[in-house]
Design a protein around this nucleic acid. Structure first.
Length: 854
RNA sequence: GGGCGGCUAGCUCAGUUGGAAGAGCGCCAGCUUGACAUGCUGGAGGUCGGGGGUUCGAAACCCUCGCCGCCCACCA
C-alpha cells in the first residue's frame, strides 16, 4: 500500500518535484527485486551493458525506455520479472579513455607503469559505474539492483574462463599466425567487426618493376611503402597482356629482391594495370594469393606502425613518412610512371580511430563452424524471432560468411587468456591458475600475456549474469531470457555471439525475441556524435521535460522506423501531455463527495450517452495499447493512450460531465474515476512517475500502479450504438461551432434539430455547442450534417454555408463520376460500390437541406 | 561491389492485406469559458521524390531513375 496524497494539487505538473521521490520509494519497497522461487510465470531481460564512456546518450535513453516499459508491463500482467542491470569493462574503450587522461597530464601508460594504471582503471570503473546507475535511475528503469553485474567481477571472470576452457577442450581454440587488423596505437589486433571504414582521398601510384631478361611490368598501389615487403607480382591467368610473363621474375625496385610473377584469379584485370604487387605480410588479399603460390612472407612493419626494413634507409620511419621517401626515390630512378588521385576506403580502429595496418601476427583463434551452424538452424527454426523481421537476414548473412574469430588482444586491460606454460614448456589450460604442472610437477608458470576480446565476455552475458557455470536458482528460473533489445549496429558484434554461446553452453537460445530499435539522428539528419557537436544530452531533456516525457517520446519512435531525426518539440509535447493528465485528474478530484472509484456496473438502461460512449472508447484504447506492446509496435500503444486521453476523455467526456461532476453526480464520478484509473495503468509502463503520482491521489486504498494489474476492460463496455450516437453529437457540435466562428463568434445562439434526430443526441449536442435547443426556428442557417438550423445573435454565417455547399458539391461531383464508370460498378466489390452510393446519397441530402433552408 | 531502409503539410513523423490523405509542432484568426494559456475553438496548408506500368481504382503492388542514411564486402 502507498500513502494517499491529498486531493488538492498544484496547478501545474512539475516533473522535478515528483520524480526523485518515487524512485526512492519503489526501490525501498523492493518493487524491482525478482524472486527466483516465485510461482508466477517468469520473464527475464538482461540489460545490455552500457558502453563505459560514462555518459548517457540518446541511444541509452531510448533503449532503457523500451526495456523498462516491457518490464513494467510484464509485472502488471502477473509475471515474475527479472530486469538485470550491469556494465561492461570495455577494454579497448577504457584503455583509450585512461590514456587520454594520462596524455593530458603529459604521461603515457608505460611511464605510469602497470600497477598504477590498474589503479586508475579501478577508479574509473567505480566512478563510471556509479554514473551509469544514477542515470538509469533518473530514467526510472525498474532494474533489480541487488543483481547488478560487472563483466570483471570475480564470478563473471570465472564464467569467462570456463567458457574459454570449454572451447579449448572442444579443440576450437588454437593459436596461429594470420594476417590480422593491427592497431598501431593500441598495439593490439582487433577483429574485422571492430574496423571502421572511412573514405580517404589518396594517390594511386603506378610503378615500373623491371623484368629479368628484359622488359618491365607496371603495377598500381596506394601504399608504395609496402613494396619493401613485396614477394611477388600477380596477374590474372586470363590476361593476354601478361601471359608471356607468368613464371618470369622481376627485380623489386629499391630492394633488389627477385620476385616471381604468378597467375591468380583474384587479380582484377580492369583495375590499374592489371598487374598486382603481392605483399602477403601486409594485405589480406595478397596473403591469400601468397598462400596459394607459396610466396615468401616479409614482415615489413613494427608493432607501432613504423617500417621494419633493416638495411634500408626507410627502416624505422613511420609508414606515411616512408611512403613519401619511397615515392621520391622511385621518381629519382625513373620508375614512377604516373600518379593519380584515388578515393577509397581505409580501415580505422573503432576505438582510437588510428589507421589499421594489416600484418601477420600469431593470435588466438576460435573456430566458429559448429556454433555458426547451430545458430543458423535455431533462427530458421523460429527459436529466435526478430523485430523488425528484416534484421534476421542481416544476422544470417553475416553468419553464413563467418570465419574464425580472433579472440586475443594485446591490451593491458581485460580477461587474461587462461593458458599457463610451466618452466619446462608444458601447457596447462584451466579456469584457475594451476598449482603444479600435471606433467612435470613444476610450480613455476607463465600465463599467456594476451587478454580476451571484450566481446568474448559480452557474448556470455545472458547466462554469465545468472550465475553460469554454477547451477543457480536464477539460471534455472530465468534462462532462457525473453527479450534482447538493442541497436542494429551490434547485431553481429554482440547479439549473434550471445545466440551462439547460449546454444552451445545451455542448449537454448538466450532469448526468444530480438528487438532492434531505431537510431536517433541529429535534427539535420547527421549522426549524433560528440565530436561533430550534433549530440543531444538526454540529461538536459530530463531536467527540461522530465523522464516521463522523454520516455513517451522514446516509446513513440523506437520501433516506428529505422532512423529518426531528433525533434525536441515532440518531447515537449509529451510534457504537455503529462500536464494534461495532471489537470484532468485535478478536475475529477475537485468533484465533491467520496467516490469509490469502483468499476461502474451499469450498462443496460444507462441514461447518460457520454458515459456509455467513453467506456466503449476506453475498451478500444486498452486493446490497442496492449496489442502495441505485445506486437513490439510501441508507437501504437502511446498513440492510442494519448489519443484516448486527450481527444476523447478530456476534449469530449470531461467537457460533457463537468456540470455533473460539480453536482457530485455519482455515476459521472464512477465513470470518470474508472477511466482515469485505467488510463493511468495503461500509461504506467511508459510514464511511470506521473502515473504513480496521480494514482496516489485517487480515492481508495492503493498499492503502486505496477502492482495493480493490467486493465482488462475489453468487451464488457463495447457499445457500438453509443459510439454512433456520440459520433453524431460530435459532428453536430463541430458544425455549429464552425458557424459560430464564421458569424464572428457570438455567445449564445439557438439550434433547432428535426425530431428525426434522437432527443438525447440533440440535447447533448446543444449543451456542448452552448446553444439553446428550440422547437421552432424560422430564420437561421441550415445545417448540412443533420436536418435543422442554427442562428446566432449577431452575424448570419452565410459565408460558411456557401463554402460548405461548394465543398459538398465538389465532393458529390467526384463521387458521381466514379459511380458513373461502368467498369467500376462491374468490377469493384459490391460493398465498395454500396459504400460510395451511400456517400453520394448523404451528400445529396446535405445539399438539399442547405438549399431548402435558404 | 552486394544488401537493407527512407523520400507524404513549413518541420518531425503516422498511414497493417490497394477503396477518395492524418497527427504533433509551427502558421493564421478568435477565446482571461470555474482542470489545464503546458489550455480551448475555428482555419489555411499536400499533383504522397521523378518517370513508366498493373488495376474499375495506387501514397500503398511491379519496373526504372534520382537523392539521403545504414549494414556487409580481401579491388590493389
Amino acid at each position: 500500500m502507498i500513502e494517499n496524497k491529498p486531493k488538492e494539487m498544484p496547478r501545474a505538473f512539475d516533473p522535478q518535484a515528483i520524480e526523485a521521490g518515487w524512485y526512492a520509494r519503489w526501490e525501498a519497497d523492493g518493487l524491482f527485486i525478482a524472486d527466483a522461487t516465485s510461482e508466477l510465470p517468469k520473464f527475464a531481460m538482461c540489460f545490455p551493458p552500457p558502453n563505459i564512456t560514462g555518459e548517457l546518450h540518446m541511444g541509452h535513453a531510448l533503449q532503457t525506455a523500451v526495456y523498462d516499459l516491457i518490464a513494467r508491463y510484464r509485472r502488471m500482467t502477473g509475471q515474475e520479472v527479472l530486469f538485470l542491470p550491469g556494465y561492461d569493462h570495455a577494454a579497448i574503450a577504457t584503455q583509450n579513455v585512461i590514456e587520454k587522461q594520462l596524455a593530458r597530464e603529459g604521461l603515457t601508460k608505460e611511464q605510469l607503469g602497470r600497477e598504477k594504471f590498474d589503479e586508475r582503471v579501478e577508479a574509473w570503473y567505480e566512478q563510471v559505474g556509479a554514473t551509469i546507475i544514477n542515470q538509469l535511475r533518473l530514467l526510472g528503469a525498474s532494474m533489480d539492483w541487488t543483481r547488478l553485474r560487472f563483466t570483471m567481477d570475480s564470478r563473471y571472470y570465472r564464467s569467462v574462463m570456463t567458457a574459454f576452457v570449454a572451447f579449448y577442450e572442444r579443440g576450437w581454440i588454437y593459436r596461429a599466425p594470420r594476417i590480422v587488423n593491427w592497431c598501431p596505437h593500441d598495439r593490439s589486433t582487433i577483429s574485422d567487426l571492430e574496423v571502421e571504414w572511412q573514405e580517404h582521398q589518396d594517390t594511386l601510384y603506378y610503378i615500373k618493376y623491371p623484368v629479368e631478361g628484359g622488359g618491365e611490368v607496371t603495377i598500381a598501389t596506394v601504399r608504395p611503402e609496402t613494396i619493401l615487403a613485396d614477394t611477388g607480382v600477380a596477374v590474372n591467368p586470363e590476361d593476354k597482356r601478361y601471359k608471356s610473363l607468368v613464371g618470369k621474375t622481376v627485380v623489386l625496385p629499391l630492394v633488389g629482391r627477385k620476385l616471381p610473377i604468378v597467375a591468380d584469379e583474384a587479380v582484377e584485370m580492369e583495375f590499374g594495370t592489371g598487374a598486382l604487387k603481392v605483399t602477403p605480410g601486409h594485405d589480406p588479399l595478397d596473403y591469400e594469393i601468397g598462400q596459394r603460390h607459396g610466396l615468401e612472407i616479409v614482415n615489413g612493419m613494427h608493432e607501432d606502425g613504423s617500417m621494419n626494413v633493416p638495411g634500408l634507409p626507410y627502416d624505422g620511419l613511420p609508414a606515411l613518412e616512408a611512403r613519401k621517401r619511397v615515392v621520391e626515390d622511385l621518381k629519382a630512378q625513373g620508375l614512377l610512371v604516373k600518379d593519380e588521385p584515388y578515393t577509397h576506403e581505409v580501415g580505422h580502429c573503432y576505438r582510437c580511430h588510428t589507421i589499421v595496418e594489416p600484418l601477420i601476427s600469431e593470435q588466438w583463434w576460435l573456430r566458429m563452424e559448429e556454433m555458426r551452424d547451430n545458430a543458423i538452424a535455431a533462427s530458421e527454426a523460429g527459436k529466435v524471432r526478430w523485430h523488425p523481421e528484416r534484421y534476421e537476414r542481416t544476422y544470417l548473412d553475416w553468419l553464413r560468411g563467418l570465419r574464425d574469430w580472433n579472440i586475443g588482444r594485446q591490451l593491458w586491460l581485460g580477461h587474461r587468456v587462461p593458458v599457463y606454460t610451466c618452466a619446462n614448456g608444458h601447457v596447462t589450460v584451466s579456469v584457475d591458475r594451476p598449482e603444479a604442472c600435471s606433467q612435470c610437477g613444476s610450480t613455476a608458470f607463465d600465463q599467456d600475456p594476451d587478454v580476451l576480446d571484450t566481446w568474448f565476455s559480452s557474448a556470455l552475458w545472458p547466462f554469465a549474469t545468472l550465475g553460469w557455470p554454477d547451477d543457480t536458482d536464477d539460471l534455472e528460473a530465468f534462462y532462457p531470457t525473453d527479450i534482447n533489445c538493442t541497436a542494429r549496429e551490434i547485431i553481429n558484434l554482440w547479439v549473434s555471439r550471445m545466440i551462439m554461446t547460449g546454444l552451445e553452453f545451455l542448449g537454448e537460445a538466450p532469448f526468444g525475441d530480438v528487438v532492434i530499435h531505431c537510431v536517433v539522428q541529429a535534427a539535420d539528419g547527421r549522426r549524433m556524435s560528440k565530436s561533430l557537436g550534433t549530440g543531444v544530452d538526454p540529461r538536459e531533456l530530463l531536467s527540461k521535460y522530465g523522464a516521463d516525457a522523454l520516455r513517451a517520446w522514446a516509446t513513440s519512435v523506437a520501433m516506428s522506423s529505422q532512423d529518426v531525426r531528433f525533434d525536441e518539440s515532440r518531447v515537449e509535447g509529451y510534457r504537455r501531455f503529462c500536464n494534461k493528465l495532471w489537470n484532468a485528474t485535478r478536475l475529477i478530484l475537485s468533484s465533491p463527495g467520496s467516490p469509490s472509484a469502483e468499476a461502474p456496473g451499469l450498462l443496460e438502461g444507462q441514461e447518460h450517452l457520454e458515459d456509455r460512449w467513453i467506456l466503449s472508447r476506453l475498451s478500444s484504447a486498452a486493446a490497442d495499447v496492449t496489442s502495441g506492446i505485445e506486437g513490439f509496435a510501441f508507437q501504437d500503444s502511446i498513440n492510442a493512450a494519448y489519443g484516448f486521453a486527450w481527444n476523447e476523455f478530456c476534449d469530449w467526456y470531461l467537457e460533457a460531465i463537468k456540470e455533473r461532476l460539480r453536482a457530485g453526480d455519482a455515476a459521472a464520478q464512477d465513470v470518470a474515476y474508472f477511466c482515469l484509473d485505467n488510463l493511468l495503468r495503461l500509461l504506467h509502463p511508459i510514464m511511470p512517475f506521473v502515473t504513480d503520482e496521480l494514482w496516489s491521489r485517487l480515492p481508495g486504498d492503493r498499492d503502486y500502479v505496477m502492482r495493480s494489474g493490467w486493465p482488462e476492460v475489453a468487451g464488457r463496455y463495447i457499445d457500438p450504438s453509443a459510439e454512433d450516437d456520440f459520433g453524431q453529437v460530435i459532428a453536430i457540435v463541430e458544425e455549429v461551432r464552425g458557424h459560430r466562428q464564421a458569424a464572428g463568434g457570438p455567445r449564445g445562439g439557438q439550434l433547432r434539430l428535426d425530431h428525426t434526430i434522437d432527443r438525447t443526441v440533440a440535447a447533448l449536442a446543444a449543451r456542448l455547442a452552448q446553444v439553446e435547443l428550440v422547437d421552432e426556428l424560422d430564420r437561421g442557417t441550415p445545417l448540412a450534417i443533420a436536418p435543422g438550423r442554427v442562428s446566432f445573435p449577431a452575424g448570419s454565417g452565410e459565408a460558411r454555408r456557401d463554402k460548405e455547399r461548394k465543398r459538398l458539391q465538389d465532393d458529390l461531383e467526384k463521387t458521381e463520376a466514379r459511380l458513373g464508370n461502368p467498369d467500376f460498378r462491374e468490377k469493384a466489390p459490391p460493398e465498395v460500390v454500396a459504400n460510395l452510393e451511400d456517400r453520394a446519397a448523404g451528400l445529396r441530402e446535405a445539399l438539399e437541406r442547405l438549399a431548402a433552408g435558404e
